[in-house]
Nucleic acid binder design. Structure first.
Ligand code: SF4
Ligand code: SF4
Lengths: 153, 153
DNA sequence: GTATTTTAAGATAAAAGAGTCTCAATAATA
DNA sequence: TATTATTGAGACTCTTTTATCTTAAAATAC
């Protein structure tokens, strides 16, 4: 799998937050309910994003988490790096230790191209962009629900 | 990680076999020594490739495994599918159940492009091609050794 | 036919990933 | 101040992946 489960959950939650962006703190419990992700597990993942400065959190009643910057400024790669680390972009197909351009394996050239394609996609895509697409086309962030269901209250 | 460890080992072993291709059976023990992979673990992986018809095996003295077809006819995708299955090419970024074109998530269009790039790379690359590149440029299949070291005896 | 070399198959163990549970810390509110 | 709502942090469990170990089956050679 390209991304870990934690990373996928982090992405989905970030999209959720970007879609609600009014500066309000959203309780993690709301998100875990709506996105059908275990509350405690999601909490841990969002703690990582908070630690990395992608989210900010607030404790107590009316607390929750929100994006620290505008969704237009958050690229998917930011979330992937925060949760899964850089392995996806540094390791590769044959996964030999200490590999890279100076000491490559036979797959390196081809793999490097593919890897760059992944990197570019993650780097050029912002949360806001996906949220806009999701809202106009009523796409889904969860098994059943489209954007309309997720945000109807 | 894109590919499982098993899959990476399977790829490396297949490249090794393609590089020696003279129709001879190569004992798995040789490969596990040369490629620095646990013998028993590699054995299991190669059993999968044998079951999928990519390799053929022969028991007893002078036994071992070899490619069933010529290395020019084996694409990387064959090995990936045999070991990791089709998930890489069917699942995706947000990993929602039952997803696809008819019921996509907001990432689908972008992800589909990237996924196709991966697919195409794996589908268009043959073992022989990589072996040729590895031999002419003395690239490596293992931590230290280039092709020259691997096959000097 | 017996010993030897090899793959096949399955049980077991260790490590990593995914998920759950408990309790502490913080903030609001009554 | 006591209660409640919330995130933070850590211990714990479950599952999957990775790796090892043991025994069986097949083929060869003597
Ligand atoms: S040389 Fe390149 S493709 Fe090969 S293992 Fe290293 S990074 Fe991956
Ligand atoms: S809709 Fe496409 S990108 Fe989204 S989860 Fe499904 S296959 Fe992946």
């Amino acid at each position: 799998m390209l991304l870990s489960k934690s990373c996928v959950y982090g992405l989905r939650a970030s999209l959720y937050l970007a879609a609600r962006e009014q500066g309000e703190f959203i309780p993690i419990r709301n998100m875990s309910d709506k996105l059908e992700i275990s509350f405690h597990f999601l909490t841990k993942i969002l703690q990582q994003l908070t630690a990395e400065g992608i989210l900010e959190s607030f404790k107590g009643p009316n607390g929750g988490v929100r994006l620290k910057k505008s969704g237009t400024e958050v690229q998917l790669i930011d979330i992937v790096l925060a949760i899964d680390g850089p392995q996806l972009l540094t390791e590769c197909a044959l996964g030999l230790p200490g590999c890279g351009v100076k000491n490559p394996c036979p797959l390196h050239d081809k793999w490097a191209e593919t890897r760059d394609a992944i990197h570019e996609m993650l780097e050029k895509t912002t949360l806001t962009e996906l949220v806009h697409k999701g809202k106009t086309e009523n796409l889904r962030l969860t098994t059943d629900g489209g954007f309309d269901i997720l945000f109807d209250n």
